[in-house]
């Protein structure tokens, strides 16, 4: 004898809910959770006109489109040239891909004497146990210098775009103080729990970052990863204690001088090392015994320089996006 249920009774059972969910007939999110699908933005007529007017003003006043026809032609040329350029680039890249050797062939061009030399003589020539460190900070140090400069240029770009003045200058933008007050309107200020945990964690995080930087030539780690850890610690400290506390030891001036000092030190030290190396002059930089903390020549100071730049860049990005300056 089988039990029979009416449809209304069945609809209340767990099995019904489960199978409806399984077949996708019932969406658990719709109507149940506190979320709504985003509405499509619809522009009213006045807003569209206002936008068009603003665009015209921009084109006329800043680019002077009304005054000269040549700018119009230049725009047309620019568009055509960019399409042409992209087409050529796509063609070239596809052509290069078609020339690549098949995967797994022994005589691929990558499989050459360079990597062999790195592995066999890396320890002897650079003094670093971590071969990757020896590669990026000794054999290919200019590449790493470029990367550090990319970070620096990125910060400068963000500074140009997001920077606010200390005071009002023309009454349109917020000043720094107002931006901070505006930003922290709803945010819990001086939260005791966060402050306590930051008080415990921040020294450990920064110490760990320093350890990663100083051990870059002995094991996994190095300037970029260690700098990122220190930057994260600084950001945690900033979140817990606010800008007033961090500005006691980290201001725009500090950032400027640390970045400038580290990058120029890197540049000068590596130029000296490359110059002496290329001209077969004794560079006078001791290699030390591999495995000791003070060893492997220039790699340790360069790691420290890179770490400082990365840590400052992380912090500066955060401060800039948060209130447009620091």
């Amino acid at each position: 004898m089988s039990r029979k249920k009416t449809e209304k009774e069945y609809e209340k059972t767990f099995a019904c809910h489960f199978f409806r969910w399984l077949h996708g007939e019932k969406d658990l999110y719709v109507g149940q959770m506190e979320m709504r699908p985003q509405e499509v933005y619809q522009e009213s007529k006045e807003e569209a006109e206002k936008r068009q007017r603003a665009k015209n003003i921009l084109l006329n006043k800043i680019y002077g489109r009304k005054k000269s026809k040549s700018i119009k032609y230049l725009e047309l040329f620019y568009r055509l040239a960019s399409i042409l350029f992209c087409g050529i680039l796509i063609y070239l890249l596809l052509l290069t891909v078609s020339w690549l050797p098949p995967i797994g062939v022994a005589d691929r061009p990558v499989n050459n004497e360079v990597s062999k030399r790195y592995i066999e003589k890396g320890l002897e020539e650079t003094g670093a146990i971590n071969i990757v460190s020896g590669m990026i900070l000794d054999y290919r140090a200019f590449d790493t210098l470029g990367e550090s400069h990319v970070l620096f240029v990125a910060t400068v770009t963000v500074l140009i775009m997001l920077r606010l003045d200390k005071k009002h200058d023309n009454g349109t933008d917020l000043s720094i103080e107002e931006a901070e007050a505006n930003d922290r309107n709803y945010e819990p200020k001086n939260d005791a729990i966060l402050q306590m945990s930051a008080y415990v964690l921040v020294p450990a995080i920064i110490l760990f970052g320093i350890y990663v930087i100083l051990n870059g030539h002995l094991g996994p780690g190095g300037g970029f990863s260690g700098g990122a850890i220190i930057g994260a610690g600084l950001i945690l400290y900033l979140n817990a204690f606010g800008f007033q506390k961090t500005e006691r030891f980290f201001t725009e001036k500090t950032y400027k001088w640390i970045s400038f000092g580290s990058l120029s030190f890197y540049c000068i030290a590596k130029s000296y090392s490359f110059y002496t190396g290329a001209n077969h002059i004794e560079s006078m930089i001791p290699k030390g015994t591999p495995g000791a903390i003070l060893s492997s020549g220039l790699i340790l100071p360069l790691n420290i320089a890179v770490g400082l730049v990365v840590a400052c860049t992380m912090y500066a990005f955060y401060a800039m996006f948060r209130k447009g300056g620091f």
């Binding site: 709803y186 945010e187 819990p188 939260d191 729990i193 966060l194 945990s197 415990v200 964690l201």
Partner: peptide, 21 residues
């Protein structure tokens, strides 16, 4: 130790934000 420091604190902050807004 690290997770027990990080997870409750972040939850606490989000909860406080919800209560404030």
């Amino acid at each position: 130790l690290f997770l027990w420091c990080a997870s409750p604190v972040s939850s606490h902050l989000i909860a406080r934000l919800e209560a404030a807004t």
